[in-house]
Design a protein around this nucleic acid. Sequence first.
DNA 1: TATTCAGAGATTTTCGAATATCTCTTGTTT
DNA 2: AAACAAGAGATATTCGAAAATCTCTGAATA
Lengths: 227, 227
Amino acid sequence: MTTRPRASTEEVYARVRADLLGGVYAPGERLKSTPLCETYGASVSVIRETLSRLTEQGLVESEPRIGFRVRQVSVDDLRHLTSARIDIESLALRYAIERGDMTWESEVVAAHHRMERTPMLTADAPPRVSDEWEAAHSGFHGALLDGAQNPWLLGIATTLRDAGEFYRRWSQVHEPGRDVAGEHREILEATLARDADRAVRALAQHYQHTADILERALAERDVAQNS
Amino acid sequence: MTTRPRASTEEVYARVRADLLGGVYAPGERLKSTPLCETYGASVSVIRETLSRLTEQGLVESEPRIGFRVRQVSVDDLRHLTSARIDIESLALRYAIERGDMTWESEVVAAHHRMERTPMLTADAPPRVSDEWEAAHSGFHGALLDGAQNPWLLGIATTLRDAGEFYRRWSQVHEPGRDVAGEHREILEATLARDADRAVRALAQHYQHTADILERALAERDVAQNS
DNA sequence: TATTCAGAGATTTTCGAATATCTCTTGTTT
DNA sequence: AAACAAGAGATATTCGAAAATCTCTGAATA
């Protein structure tokens, strides 16, 4: 959100994407070019190109001649997304476990360690999930799949992860009783043991659990909005 | 490749994409803005936005400050693509068979019929695979998956199909002995019988068969180029 | 001879103004 | 009162020129 003069498309793209994933813009919110130009210190063509690319990724929606808006969220969409994500990440994880070398293993362990050592919640009241932890979390799941070595599969997984992160960030929910660290540890152990079935089961449960919580939050919000 | 004045981004995008899939541009070929502006009768910003979007889809590659070029092809990439495609389309086909309704069934049958009734080869010498058949073929495979009803999955499948079509179009190979129609019929029958395992097996074999042929053509071309 | 450097030309990238389109308000007609 | 039409303002879209950057050539230097 910092305002700087002169910015290349690549940079603006990265910043808008980060802001989108960081929950700066609400789902469905219109993304008008003029304000965005000022915010990111770029001209209309740069903003337009950025939004085009993000549309292709599904983070932004475009109605030609009307404008761009942040992707809408809905329970249905979340279900579809979760299903696709579990299916595809499971595939990738299986390949990774089958083919991943030692470098990959080390990266996974390192990413896990980084996540464990990053405090999940901020000191704010009410506490929010910290940006650092979100990044480390994303990094861990990315590292898990990297062993699959199929750029197509990894690209797809990244797109889906981004969309998922958007849901997660937007509904800053936190389930007190949940043992997230334990879930991650289980995935890590099964992966290192090269036990694909167990790892995939743990991964699927992890995502499904998150999705269930998000779905509940989403339903509540819908009820609140309609009243 | 038709030259018309005044074109909206959406239209230019569709035309460039079609030309890319239609084999008008060679893999690795540079896509310079000035010639493209003239070809499509649009200004540089429109072209740029189009290429950006296609880059996001993997049909075009971009090196910032250097330019855009048509996606490179390689045996390795083809293998990755084929693997991802088989895995993901299999998933989608299973969902479609599980959940598809009668409308879906009818669409599948209709698309198959359309493909069967379209002549595969042109009257040229040497005969080429006709554009109409390619479109019908793509339509059939698309119809198969549509029953899955998961927009995320379908979007991904489309992206991968586009990339595959690019390979297919570019290396206009035709295996005389191959019974493509039979392969399609097998997929269709298994699908209508709601026999997921059999349908998925047939689909995977179909794609693998195509990929093997393409790979051979690609390897030959590489040898020819390096001499 | 190999390497470096300068500069011309080609190309990409960015910009902001000009144009086209949409949206909402207000007034008119039925 | 309802439906429609006109117009003002907001906004998206397109354009082509200006600026930044890259690439290639050929001469100067070690």
